[in-house]
C-alpha cells in the first residue's frame, strides 16, 4: 500500500510525459499511436539480442536533428536502456 502512494505520479510528471509524446507527433505529423507501435517494434527486435528495459525506453523524432545546428533532415533517436548485454535467446 505504502509503495502505491510513493509510486503515484505527480501532475508535473504527467504533464511532462504527455508533452513528450504530443510533441513527437506534432513535429512529424505522426500519431502517438503510431509512435507507440514503432517503439514496441524496435523493442521487440532489440530484445531478440539483448535484455532491455522496454518500459523506460524513449523514442523521439526531431525535425532538424539537434536544434540550432542547421540539420534539416528529421532524425529518429531511440534511448534504450540495456539491462544485460549477454542475454541468452530463449
Amino acid at each position: 500500500m505504502f509503495k502505491n502512494i510513493l509510486k503515484r505520479k505527480s501532475s508535473r510528471e504527467i504533464a511532462k510525459d504527455r508533452l513528450k509524446i504530443l510533441l513527437i507527433s506534432d513535429r512529424v505529423n505522426c500519431s502517438p499511436e503510431m509512435m507507440e507501435m514503432i517503439k514496441n517494434d524496435i523493442a521487440k527486435v532489440i530484445s531478440k539480442y539483448m535484455k532491455i528495459d522496454a518500459k523506460s525506453m524513449e523514442i523521439q523524432i526531431t525535425k532538424t536533428g539537434n536544434r540550432g545546428r542547421g540539420l534539416k533532415n528529421p532524425t529518429l533517436y531511440a534511448n534504450i536502456p540495456i539491462l544485460d548485454l549477454n542475454h541468452d535467446i530463449p
Binding site: 501532475s11 510528471e13 513528450k20
Partner: peptide
C-alpha cells in the same frame, strides 16, 4: 506548485523545448 510536484520546473520546460 513546483515544490509540490504540481508544476513543471524551468528545467523541465528547457528540456522539452531545448532552447
Amino acid at each position: 506548485m513546483i515544490r509540490r510536484g504540481d508544476m513543471m520546473s524551468s528545467e523541465d520546460v528547457v528540456d522539452i523545448l531545448s532552447l
